[in-house]
Design a protein around this nucleic acid. Structure first.
Lengths: 216, 216
DNA sequence: CGAACCGTTGATGGCTGTCAATTTTGGTGG
DNA sequence: CCACCAAAATTGACAGCCATCAACGGTTCG
């Protein structure tokens, strides 16, 4: 998982909310594809923002840090998804490649036509963020992990077998849990027969209904 | 706090991220102002969305419910702020007046010109939601309440004296805490001399630096 | 004046964080 | 192909924070 571009993950390009897909942003200016190796920074908090990013393959984490090192990942992005929205010309977050990844970079000619294309993407991101708030704010550890696994399954074509690009630490920082708690929940799900693990990053969802029930 | 339109809260209209204010959405169609009494529903989850909303006075909560009644408030909105963004033509959340409130309703002629106006508002909302994720996912109870109080102070013109429109239950559901925990933290802050309470909804911020320090 | 609601405070338990040790995994080099 | 190593993941013990349950005071409204 350290070698750049080592595993294209999933090339399934279905937009998650039906709002975004692999199609190019027609009105954006000529763009380029940039490769990032694992843990490479795509942009940093405070940087000037003048582009949008679309994952070609690989996976990206977008996060924020506190002074003492606590981290909150606000979103993961996989192939086809667009990220990098910012509100005042500056990035408020960090974005890093999780594994070797390719990202298409759209520079923005801040025009009305672009707004029309971008708005639905931004709104979808907003809804996702707000829904994730419910997970982090009001659900127990098991429910959070269940929601995460189902979300990942959903994004990888609803196949019952998923490949996680991210570590337990990433998952924990996404769900507001520690690595230990994430690990314990994985073990618990395995013991109950809900999932099967082949290595730590490969998960078979054996009983999606059981996981779905946990989300209430 | 129950009588409609009883207390205009703050008419200070400074947009929080500098991105939204009291100015009308120029390109939107003729609009109307609607009054809502306390706890009145403005829109419900699943409803068709065809409007944006701007608070004239009062306060609004936007939230989501789980089947068992757990609630997560994703945002509060006060005078001048715009809410009601949705991604696929349907509302994914509930919106209610917290106290008697007036809301200006903009019906949307889905055009490019409108997108240009709305996009910055949507992006600001996105950043706020993602920042709130950090609070809920990674901060302790005291830090969450401190962040909340400072945010409220910020929105009411940075005056050290703030009027809370919302109950402890609302605050708890916003911060991912119980009413008891919220109440305990308020008491703790009062004991430490960080705040002073005049009634349960009126708060004087005596040591904003102390609260700021807690947010790390 | 009583009922209902809201907020506060106390006692207790459980979930999850913390600390620590061990095992597994994945990668490297012989 | 196997040995070795560092990093990641798992598991256990324990503590602490916060949720839960409960009781009580204050305020509002009928």
């Amino acid at each position: 998982m350290t070698a750049p571009a080592s595993r294209p993950q999933s090339i399934h390009l279905r937009g998650h909310n039906g709002a975004q897909g692999p199609a190019a942003l027609a009105a954006a200016q000529p763009h380029q594809v940039q490769f990032y190796s694992a843990n490479a920074e795509i942009y940093g908090q405070g940087e000037k923002a003048r582009a949008l990013y679309q994952v070609e393959f690989g996976a990206v984490r977008v996060y924020r840090l506190m002074a003492d090192g606590r981290r909150q990942i606000s979103a993961f992005h996989v192939a086809g998804e667009v990220f990098g929205f910012e509100s005042d010309g500056h990035h408020h977050f960090f974005a890093e490649a999780i594994c070797g990844s390719a990202v298409r970079i759209y520079t923005l000619p801040v025009g009305a036509d672009v707004s029309r294309e971008i708005l639905p993407l931004a709104l979808a991101a907003l809804v996702r963020a707000q829904e994730h708030l419910m997970v982090v704010g009001r659900q127990h550890a098991c429910e959070r992990v269940a929601a995460f696994l189902l979300d990942m399954m959903d994004r990888q074509g609803e196949l019952p077998s998923i490949e996680l690009a991210m570590s337990r630490a990433d998952i924990g920082d996404y769900l507001g849990l520690t690595i230990e708690t994430v690990s314990r929940v994985f073990s618990k799900f395995r013991a109950k027969g809900y999932i099967r693990l082949s290595g730590s990053r490969s998960v078979d969802i054996l009983k999606p209904e059981a996981l779905l029930d946990m989300c209430v």
